[in-house]
């Protein structure tokens, strides 16, 4: 028992000692979509041997911003990654905690693909058809009804006569947010009745456009995109929704669907031709610059041509780079820590 008490005493001292030590390591939280890129930069940054390798947590965009906006000080993260832009409400929340100076860094693009097994013909859809196949309520003859379509042929006569079976991310995922916003909302706008509704009652429109059907045609397959890829190879009638990097890595087993006549390729997404792509960001707490060693250098590493440039190491990980002009702008803003302005 004496030994145990001793052990407890040791733990207690370590606990107290741990509090006193100042943080010498960058802490990053946020989106699981940006996670592979942020970690690659962190590893390269740490490998140079000047600063410690930053710790990167995968908490999701919303969770990351919540932690980020909790306060200033070594108990709070320095950077948060986001697969969407920071919201006005979040900026206000940050300001309440005294975080008024935030630098926004746009990293690049990520395409969201609808893919299926190579064993089946490729998916060719328009955003309107995506909305019709996946929304909970669709307009039929000018009236909103619960989605009646069971097969793709029901949606459009040109589509194959197979059951609608779409595997996609759950509502907690940033990929899902982006998908409903870009693909489903884009499709909903094609209906004159919904377009009219958008003008009169934007909220009601958003609810219709963003609500995915729950009758089994859309299957929430969890946050793990690898799992969706595996399920697609096993079931050739199913269509999966996930990030471009997973298509890039598994191109021998699955194929990307053609949306609105555009194939999800590296070139098409970076040129902005592919319809379902989003920007990725990270946000830096300016108050921590100078207090946490290496923060400015990390920003410089991330925005260097070696990293997020056209042939940078992040493109190997599936990041789709910004245009040359935009990269230069982002780099100069990151270097000068110019304050975020949402207007």
């Amino acid at each position: 028992m004496i030994k145990k008490t001793l052990g407890l005493a040791v733990i207690a001292t370590v606990a107290l000692a741990g509090q006193a030590v100042a943080r010498d390591q960058i802490r990053i939280v946020g989106s699981s979509t940006v996670f592979p890129f942020a970690t690659t930069v962190a590893e390269t940054f740490g490998d140079k041997g000047v600063f410690k390798t930053p710790v990167v947590e995968s908490t999701g965009s919303g969770g990351g911003l919540k932690l980020f906006c909790a306060g200033i000080g070594e108990g709070h993260p320095d950077i948060t990654n986001a697969s969407r832009r920071i919201k006005k409400s979040e900026v206000e929340k940050c300001a309440k905690a005294g975080i008024t100076e935030i630098t926004e860094v746009k990293v690049g693009f990520d395409g969201i693909v609808l893919a299926n097994s190579k064993a089946a013909p490729p998916v060719i859809l328009t955003k309107k058809q995506i909305f019709m196949a996946l929304a909970k309520q669709v307009p039929v003859n000018g009236k909103l009804v619960a989605n009646p379509y069971k097969t793709w042929k029901d949606v459009d006569a040109s589509l194959p006569n197979t059951k609608i079976e779409v595997l996609g991310p759950p509502p907690t995922s940033g990929t899902r947010d982006a998908f409903v916003e870009l693909a489903m909302e884009g499709g909903a706008k094609k209906f004159p009745s919904l377009k009219a509704l958008r003008k009169t009652d934007k909220r009601a429109f958003k609810i219709i456009a963003h609500t995915v059907r729950e009758d089994g045609a859309y299957i929430e397959a969890g946050e793990n995109d690898n799992l969706i890829v595996q399920k697609l190879t096993a079931n050739k009638n199913a269509v999966g929704i996930f990030g471009f990097s997973f298509l890039d890595q598994n191109a021998d087993r699955i194929q990307g669907g053609i949306i609105g006549g555009v194939k999800p390729t590296f070139e098409n997404i970076s040129a902005g031709d592919y319809g379902i792509s989003r920007s990725l960001y990270f946000y830096v707490k300016n108050a921590h610059v100078g207090k946490v060693p290496g923060l400015k250098e990390y920003l410089a590493e991330f925005t260097s041509e070696d990293a997020f440039g056209e042939f940078g190491y992040l493109t190997e990980k599936g990041l789709i780079p910004l245009s040359k002009e935009e990269r230069a702008l982002v780099r100069s803003r990151a270097a000068s820590l110019s304050k975020l302005n949402l207007m």
Partner: peptide, 30 residues
């Protein structure tokens, strides 16, 4: 549940555990 490269040297260093490592790798595109 974090990406941590450095080997933890004591109990206050950032660390991850085996099942978390499995989870993170299972979620990687490569």
């Amino acid at each position: 549940v974090a990406f941590i490269v450095d080997i933890p040297g004591n109990v206050t260093d950032p660390a991850t555990v085996l099942p978390v490592q499995i989870f993170l790798w299972a979620d990687s595109p490569e």
